[in-house]
Design a protein around this nucleic acid. Sequence first.
DNA 1: ACACAAACGGAGCCGGACTCACCTTATGGG
DNA 2: CCCATAAGGTGAGTCCGGCTCCGTTTGTGT
Lengths: 187, 187
Amino acid sequence: MPSSRPLRADARRNREALLTAAREAFLTGDADAHVEEIARRAGVAVGTLYRHFETREALVEEVYRQEVAELCAAPARLLAQYAPDEAVHRFLLLLVEHSAVGKGMSEALESIMATDSPVFDDARAEMAHALDELLAAGVAAGAIRDGVSGRVLLRALGGICGMRAKGWEDDAVRITTILYDGLRSGR
Amino acid sequence: MPSSRPLRADARRNREALLTAAREAFLTGDADAHVEEIARRAGVAVGTLYRHFETREALVEEVYRQEVAELCAAPARLLAQYAPDEAVHRFLLLLVEHSAVGKGMSEALESIMATDSPVFDDARAEMAHALDELLAAGVAAGAIRDGVSGRVLLRALGGICGMRAKGWEDDAVRITTILYDGLRSGR
DNA sequence: ACACAAACGGAGCCGGACTCACCTTATGGG
DNA sequence: CCCATAAGGTGAGTCCGGCTCCGTTTGTGT
């Protein structure tokens, strides 16, 4: 259904502007910028925002989806470059680092990983699948314990990404290491 | 300042009724019950609710605080009854179990553990302190790795408690076990 | 150029948190 | 026991933010 008609030029431009404006708003701190504000930043009226996105939530989700897609590309790349268990370790740390781009985006990731909103199911499935690959490779190499699904690990990571206090990065790295050691200890 | 005057009898009753109504509302699922609804359940008007609690959030916080206080009593009890590392393990599982009382309360716990809202600082500090005791006992007994603070572990637990999908309990138990193994592996 | 569907703008609607001016009642001193 | 009085209760009304609706503008295919 992506081709019910190619979308008029100005419409495409506005849609893009809205997504950019929203992403910037979230990155610069306030994850609950008003729709008016986002529309203003994009140089359009609220009505236009609602022509492109069903609800405010839908817009937020779209921004999240793009961010997640980027993260999902990582596992394959890491597996090609490192030994399986090293790849797992690096991915965990990458995730922590990535969620550091801003409070807004970190909230986004947390939502994706912790909620049951049907809208995020795809993103979660994709993420879980990417993690499954990583873990499977680790198990095959005898470096990672068996019986841990990507979905389970994803849950744990959700908690890590939700951290936002000052000095949270140190905490995140520490928890990540604990998890990693835990994954190896039962192998 | 808890004694600017003993609070009139009906006032105390209403305050209690509001807390009870709110707790029940959260336990029975909808964590975002409207203030009107909560007031109605308590048999008072919204104005009365706002006489006792600055904002809706403040009411929610008070309910959380009570729940957390209950959890904070657990570590001391467990330490008196079990070996340190066993106490840690049991507390982790207790936490999971406790957050199962309902989606509403589980959201509450997640908030307490994941946010930086100054209002929750006390609860977090208390919780972290309780965990510190547990961990310290474990370290002293040589059963737990050193260098993990209660605060850090609390973060990890926040993620676990935030899980709400069907079958989340199995996931939670599994993650908890991984964490536990991780805590022991570096000793 | 023209027609016309597609897209835009923005005043206004609506629901939910919160306020305030006025009424009710517990309580303690006479 | 009763009254004065201040603590407490009430709920219609305000405010604010997400969302809608329809009249106007504009890109596009002929």
